[in-house]
Design a protein around this nucleic acid. Structure first.
Lengths: 179, 179
DNA sequence: CAGAAACATGTAATTAAATACATGTTTTAA
DNA sequence: TTAAAACATGTATTTAATTACATGTTTCTG
C-alpha cells in the first residue's frame, strides 16, 4: 500500500536542473534545504546519478572555473530530460507517503500511560519539533517575504507551507499528551 | 563497528515479540497494520532478521503444526532480547522522522498557481488521503472501542491517534488549496 | 594571516530495502 | 466441491541509500 521509491531521485534532479543549471554541490544543498522535508539524498548518491543522467542524454554539463582553479560542473537539462520531467509530474501519484519515525515506533512499545519513560520521551520530541517548526517558519519568512515571491515559486511555497503545518501538528499532538 | 548502528527493524521485531510470541507471518502482518504507518518491512526482510536475532541469542523459536502439516515457527524473546529492547526504548531519539512523499515532490516543480495540472493533482491526493483517514478512523473504532482497550495498549493507541491526526491534517491542507 | 567553514567532486564499502522467485497448506466463500 | 484467498516460510537478485574514504580550493572570520 505504501511501498516503493522507484528511482525518484533522477526526477528530483531533473526538476532542480529545470529551474536553473547547477552543480552537484548545489543539488546536495537543495536536499538539505527546500527538498529535505520530503526527500533525502547525499552527494554520494547525487554525483553517480548525474553521470547516469548524462549518459542517458537527459542532462549535459559545462566545465567552469571559480577563482584560480576550482573546477565546477554546471549541469543543465536537455530537451529529452525536460520531456522526461514533464511526463513524471503529469503521472498520477497513487502511493501514500512513506514515513519512518523511530520515536513513534518506541511509543508503540510503551504499554501504559503511567510508564515513567513516556513524559521524558514526549518532552524530548517536543523540543526537537518546536525547533524544526521555528526553523521552517523562519525560512518561510526569508524565502517568501511577499506575494511576488510566492507567485514566482508557487510549488516551493506549497511544500514549505505543508511542512510547517505538519510540524505544527506534530508539536500540537505532543503537547496534547504532555502532562 | 562502534557507533550509530541503525538497524531499527530488529528492535521493532523484538518489541512485537515482547507483546506475545508470534510467527514471521504475524510480524509481516503487523507491518501492514499497526506499525505500517510509521515503518515498513516485507517478509523477505523479516525472515532473515529473525534468523539473525536467533543466532544473536535475542529470540528463540518453537516449532508448531497447524492442521495436518502446516509448519509454523513461534518466536519469542529471550532475557537478552528483552534487555536489548528496553535499552533501545530508553535511548534518546534525536533524529527527525524521514518522509518520502512523491506527490509533494511533484508539487515542488509546479511553478505557478494557475498550472492546469495542479488542481487535478490535489484532487487525486484528497481522494487518497480521505480514504486513508477513513480507514484509520475505522481501525481506531474497532481496536479501541473503550477506555479499557486504550489503557491496555496505550502506545498503540497513541500512534494510531497520531496517524489519524496526521492524515486529517493532510486532508485539511489539500482542501485549503482546492479551488 | 591563519584556521575554520564552506565550496566542490568523486569512489568504496556496507547496509537496507524492494522485487521477484519458489513452494506448499489451510480456510473460506461462491 | 472447488477455486480463491489467506496462511506460512524461505531465497535470490537487484536497487537504493548510508557511511566512510579521499582530495583539493575558496571564502570568511577572528
Amino acid at each position: 500500500m505504501i511501498i516503493g521509491q522507484r528511482n525518484r531521485l533522477q526526477y528530483i534532479i531533473l526538476g532542480l536542473l529545470n529551474q536553473r543549471p547547477q552543480t552537484g554541490y548545489d543539488l546536495a544543498k537543495a536536499f538539505e534545504n527546500e527538498i529535505g522535508e520530503f526527500w533525502q539524498a547525499q552527494h554520494s548518491q547525487i554525483y553517480p546519478m548525474l553521470k547516469r543522467l548524462e549518459t542517458a542524454g537527459d542532462i549535459t554539463h559545462e566545465d567552469t572555473i571559480t577563482g584560480e582553479k576550482l573546477a565546477k560542473k554546471q549541469y543543465s537539462l536537455t530537451p529529452a530530460g525536460h520531456e522526461k520531467l514533464v511526463t513524471w509530474v503529469g503521472e498520477p501519484s497513487p502511493e501514500l507517503s512513506a514515513t519512518k519515525d523511530e520515536f513513534i515506533l518506541k511509543l508503540y512499545f510503551i504499554k501504559r500511560s503511567d510508564d515513567p519513560r513516556l513524559q521524558p520521551m514526549l518532552q524530548e520530541q517536543a523540543v526537537l519539533h518546536r525547533a524544526q517548526l521555528a526553523h521552517l517558519q523562519q525560512r518561510r519568512e526569508t524565502v517568501f517575504p511577499d506575494q511576488a515571491a510566492i507567485d514566482g515559486a508557487y510549488g516551493h511555497y506549497l511544500i514549505l507551507d505543508h511542512a510547517i503545518g505538519r510540524e505544527q501538528y506534530y508539536v500540537d499532538w505532543l503537547t496534547k499528551f504532555l502532562g
